[in-house]
Design a protein around this nucleic acid. Structure first.
Length: 848
DNA sequence: GCGGATCAC
DNA sequence: TATGGTGATCCGC
């Protein structure tokens, strides 16, 4: 939190053998080697460590790929790149802006400092805030033992047995943070808070105004008497010094002397001597930027009893680096001249720059780049090896450029909830956990009045392997039920994918994104209409991919079908509210693509529907494998369909999906199954990170191909084996029938009749809800899950292939071995550059 | 739009 | 015993 670099050092040192450990090992502390040994002993052999190794191998492979690319660059290419890059650099130089004074304020060891302040017992003791599992931060005393943020508490305890671990009190930190922000706002009402303990200010305007301020407006009074540690009364000049040295928690004994707050005017430079006057208990600050920042830090300490560090520079990038320079309780300024900036940049390790993380550092180091100077020297090469976004960013850093205006908080783009727990492998528990997370998320969303369309489920297995699965639906979601309806299916898919082995989870998360703006909100209920529209379109051009223009057509109300649907039945039972009936709107883009799969599903729908009422166990036809499923319950059938969709080959034993847990205790049996246990990291099959990746890729593509192949078989079967039912004529009937359903549900919008239920026209299963929005969500899921997959297959096989089919095409090609994996792409194989991934963070700030 | 990665705090 | 949670962005599909 308060220091990212600290956080990463332990891993850097241990796993990457890089990054200088700047831990000042004092007499009471441990030296670097001891620290590393203890950490390594504690971490070695763990699943966590195994995953770290695996990730490291992946990074190494990336680097190897990059080096291979580098080897193929010709001098001519390099010269050409040099010209292009330098042209861009000149442009940047021309626009260099040194007119702003940006300040980065960073509270020292914030959480730990708050805890120490509020509990005198903790003074002089090594403490950390967090838990046995994870530390958020530590005080400087503890840091001497190598106890840092992001270190697990139990390892920290081995480093420093006397360490006191305090659980976090975020409410308290928020309150303190608010106090600090009140001060900051006086210097820049538009300041940008990065977190509870960090903020950027643009004090340019304040500085201008301040030049005319009388001393009284720059005078502040020290609190006295409220702290026993102030010490004996001495001359006034010492008062501030002693005060400042004693009122705050002891963070660091050897703070840079030149930047310690001081009361002796003889030590000050001329400006400070003329401006900083200590009269009685007051202090007057000057009008320079440095004085302003001292004033800010002084006021923060007066108000909160906590110290802050700060950096002053012409842009945010530099200010951030500066604030780290004299931490804790210090400040540093880069004067606003190009020379001062370049002097500062010259030997600056790139890792110090916000946005250059562990991986980027390692990649650049492989190119011989450690400092900003080297970064500049290699600019042409970088432009050939990295994406434009990345090398532009690098060039900014190399020139000491950064953002000068502080971006206002934009609109939120996502919201999520996730939780780590001890292993959960029982599916029922996984579902109920998922539901809880959805409930929490819904609560948070509603607090901000947000509705979104994309639900992402995040899963981390006990080997720390992370997977995300997302689904975007047509309707906007906000309630727990709506979100869970989507999340549940995503989770189900993953559970089925690894079946019969259980998912052995250690973390689950749910995220919402694609938030709707006002315009979208009126389209919230169009999901089912889209589906129905698809039927209509199919009527006019069966088997064909529809042109986009068709989307603007409207469904005409059609007369009732003679067939008895759930909706028909309900219609007679219900008291329907006619207000705000959904209009026939734009066709659901996804559902409208082709009619073939629709036919395929339809047969099932009908058989399901007709058989549904009589008995629990019936004979169903699976729309995926087209085998008759005899004498099974709806639920079992549903599971079968899911299994077919997710893993076609598994359809025969789909009943085993339900059973789960106990079997999964043997671990080494299914290494290559996603999110299943992979205990043995040294296994020859997965010697390199790339190997791991390759296994997955092949797995996916062959799976995709299987689906596609099966899908295409469906199409054939439909036309040959399946009689009249699925032919266009019948389709027309079906369309009529479904359109009639639409008519019948039209009046049923937000008004719900409790205790009633709806039947999904896709899966034909009764939904345990009477909420139409929620019901629509379900329909979306069914559409996405069942139809769309088959649609893709159809696109590939269609002569009339639309643009959007690249995904399926790619998958087929991959399966056939015709496409190379991007990471392995050689230069000769492609005309376009394969860019190494670069930093993607904070670019917005830099380019603002 | 999806999924994996990277990064920050 | 035990290695976090939230949000953003980028890249290649």
């Amino acid at each position: 939190m308060d220091n990212r670099k600290e956080k990463n050092n332990y891993k850097d040192d241990l796993l990457l053998r890089m990054g200088l450990n700047d831990n000042k090992a004092g007499m009471e502390g441990l030296d670097k080697e001891k620290i590393n040994k203890i950490i390594m002993d504690a971490t070695k052999g763990s699943r966590f460590y195994g995953n770290e190794l695996k990730k490291e191998k992946q990074v190494n492979q990336r680097i190897a790929n990059m080096m291979q690319q580098k080897a193929q660059i010709t001098n001519q290419q390099l010269r050409k790149a040099q010209l292009e890059v330098d042209r861009f650099a000149m442009e940047l130089e021309r626009n260099r802006n040194l007119n702003n004074t940006i300040v980065h304020v960073d509270m020292d060891a914030f959480y730990a400092a708050v805890e120490m302040r509020d509990n005198p017992e903790l003074k002089d003791k090594p403490i950390a805030v967090g838990s046995m599992s994870m530390l958020a931060t530590s005080n400087y005393h503890a840091r001497r033992f190598g106890v840092r943020a992001a270190l697990p508490g139990f390892i920290a305890k081995r480093l420093c047995p006397q360490l006191i671990i305090v659980p976090p009190n975020f409410d308290k930190y928020r309150a303190v943070s608010k106090e600090v922000k009140e001060i900051l706002a006086e210097y820049d009402p538009n300041f940008m808070a990065v977190s509870l303990d960090e903020a950027y200010l643009n004090i340019t305007q304040h500085l201008e105004e301040r030049q005319d301020w009388p001393e009284d407006k720059r005078r502040y009074f020290s609190k006295t008497g409220n702290s026993v540690e102030i010490g004996e009364p001495g001359e006034e000049a010492d008062k501030l010094s002693k005060y400042e040295g004693s009122i705050s928690p002891l963070l660091f004994e050897d703070s840079p002397p030149d930047l310690q707050p001081r009361g002796n005017p003889s030590q000050l430079n001329s400006e400070e001597q003329s401006n900083l006057q200590i009269l009685q208990n007051s202090v007057v600050f000057g009008t320079s930027a440095e004085e302003v920042v001292k004033e800010i830090r002084f006021r923060i300490e007066q108000k909160t009893t906590l110290t802050a560090s700060a950096g002053i520079a012409p842009n945010t990038m530099l200010a951030k680096v500066c604030s780290d320079k004299n931490k804790p309780n210090g400040q540093y300024q880069i004067l606003p001249s190009r020379e001062a900036v370049m002097d500062f940049i010259r030997d600056l390790p790139i890792r110090k720059v916000s946005g250059i993380g562990k991986v980027t550092e390692k990649m650049l180091m492989a190119l011989g780049i450690v400092t900003c100077t080297e970064l500049y020297q290699q600019r042409a090469l970088l432009s050939l090896l990295f994406s434009e976004t990345s090398w532009h960013y690098f060039l900014h850093i190399a020139l000491g450029l950064g953002s000068t205006d502080l971006a206002r908080d934009g609109e939120r783009k996502s919201m999520s909830v996730e939780r780590t727990f001890s292993e959960i492998f029982k599916t029922e528990e996984q579902y109920s956990l998922c539901q809880e997370l959805c409930t929490e998320l819904a609560r948070d969303l509603q607090k901000e009045g947000l509705k979104g369309r994309t639900v992402t489920v995040k899963l981390k297995n006990v080997n720390f392997e992370v997977k995300t699965r997302a689904s975007t639906v047509q309707s906007t979601l906000s309630t727990a039920e709506e979100i869970f309806a989507v999340a549940k299916e995503l989770l189900r898919t993953e559970i089925n994918a690894t079946s019969p082995h259980p998912l052995r989870l250690r973390l689950m998360g749910v995220r919402m994104s694609t938030f709707s703006n006002e315009d979208d909100k009126k389209h919230q209920q169009r999901s089912i209409i889209g589906f129905l529209q698809a039927g209509h379109q199919a009527l006019s051009s069966p088997g064909c991919v529809l042109d986009k223009t068709d989307k603007t057509e409207f469904v005409k109300p059609l007369e009732m079908s003679h067939k008895k649907s759930f909706f028909d039945k309900k219609r007679s039972e219900r008291i329907l509210s006619h207000q705000d009936a959904p209009r026939c709107e734009i066709v659901d883009q996804q559902a409208v693509q082709t009619s073939q799969p629709f036919q395929a599903l339809k047969k099932t729908s009908e058989s399901l529907e007709t058989s549904k009422n009589s008995n629990n166990c019936q004979t169903f036809t699976c729309p995926v494998c087209f085998r008759e499923q005899e004498g099974i319950s709806l639920e079992a059938f549903n599971e079968h369909v899911d299994a077919c969709l997710d893993e076609p080959s598994a359809s025969e034993h789909s009943h085993s999906h339900a059973s789960s847990a106990a079997a999964g205790q043997e671990e080494d049996a299914h290494r290559s199954i996603p999110l299943c246990e992979k205990r043995d990291y040294e296994d020859a099959e997965i010697t390199s990170a790339d190997g791991v990746d390759l296994v997955e890729t092949e797995d996916n593509s062959s799976k995709a191909a299987s689906i596609d192949t099966i899908g295409s078989n469906h199409s054939k079967e439909e036309c040959s084996d399946i009689p009249s039912q699925s032919c266009p004529v019948s389709l027309a009937n079906e369309t009529v029938r479904i359109l009639s359903r639409q008519e019948s549900i039209q009046p049923c919008t937000d008004e719900v009749v409790t205790g009633q239920a709806l039947v999904c026209p896709v899966c034909n299963l009764e939904q345990k809800t009477s909420d139409l929005t929620l019901f629509n969500v379900h329909v979306d899921i069914c559409l996405n899950k069942g139809i769309i997959r088959e649609l893709r297959n159809n696109e590939v096989n269609s002569a009339n292939q639309p643009k959007g089919s690249s995904r399926s095409t790619d998958r087929l090609q991959k399966a056939a071995g015709r496409t190379k994996r991007p990471g392995l792409k050689t230069k000769s194989s492609t005309s376009r550059k394969t860019k190494a991934q670069g930093p993607r963070q904070t670019l917005d700030i830099f380019f603002k």
